[in-house]
Amino acid sequence: MILEPAEIMSLVAHMRRVGVAEIELEEAGSALRVVVPEQAIAPAVDGTAAATTVAAPYVIAAEACGFFQPGHPARAAAPARGRRVEAGEVVGTIAAGPLLRPVAAPAAGTLGRLLCAAGGRVDHGTPLFEFAPHSPSSPDSGKRKDTR
């Protein structure tokens, strides 16, 4: 693969920010085409508002086979819809026997709806969470926060 999922998410966030709808990359015989849904290219709004008003147009999918658990089987609170997460944050686990593999946020963003029941059998690619990546914070948005 040309890019890791996290890098694609980061790329998508940049595309949203600058209003690019589609790109294609080719390298050494492999190709990647990224199409951003129109409603997702809307100019970035205030982060808090984005979390509640912008739909979560992407999904976090399983990267392992096993039984999915949002959060962690030994922790009571599973990450809820609307929860803001950092890139790489573990938002769920996939159990194969006694081994747990992580379901991690591919970028900083906000979790949308849960797409798979707790305890559900999942395979590579099974959608688990809706996900809305945050636009990379620009110097402008930083300023807006400071002056509030």
Partner: peptide, 14 residues
Amino acid sequence: RDGAGLGALPASLA
């Protein structure tokens, strides 16, 4: 394999 690490099902559950 996973940048976010790996875990064990806690003994209390396993």
